[in-house]
Design a binder for these strands. Structure first.
Length: 120
DNA sequence: TGATTGACCAACT
DNA sequence: CAGTTGGCCAATC
């Protein structure tokens, strides 16, 4: 029996995650789930977070701070250097944060599923 | 090597 | 409404 039932092969999937994250425009944000869906693994949104942890560990530089959870919450902030580094990175791009949440989440949401771009 | 954890999310109770 | 559960599976314990 095949191990993967949701179109998820880790090394390939991780690399695709990095490429999508790299495409998130400056000053915009997206969610783990939206990326997973774009990659055809909607139910594996946790793995998007795993991929980002992996990228951090391996020193792969991608704008991971632009990925938040489906409610606009900065759920990955603990993985950044200091307590509020993720927030400061977003604020430096003009994104307003309140209580660890992106205030204009809907307005700033960048949905890869609605975009026309290539993974290069 | 088995069990648990977790940068998630939708459905269910 | 909030809390729980099921799915997913790499990484960690």
């Amino acid at each position: 029996m095949q191990k993967y039932t949701n179109n998820l092969n880790s090394s390939i999937f991780f690399e695709k995650v990095y490429r999508v994250v790299h495409k998130i425009p400056y000053g915009r944000i997206t969610s783990y789930g939206a990326i997973a869906e774009y990659l055809g693994a909607k139910k594996s949104s946790r793995m998007v977070g795993t991929a980002l942890t992996n990228s951090h560990k391996n020193g792969i530089h991608i704008p991971a701070h632009r990925v938040v959870n489906r409610n606009g919450l900065l759920s990955g902030r603990a993985h950044f250097g200091t307590d509020n580094e993720m927030q400061m990175l977003l604020e430096s791009e003009g994104i307003e944060i309140k209580d660890f949440q992106v205030v204009e989440f809907k307005k700033l949401f960048w949905d890869p599923n609605l975009e026309n771009f290539s993974l290069d």
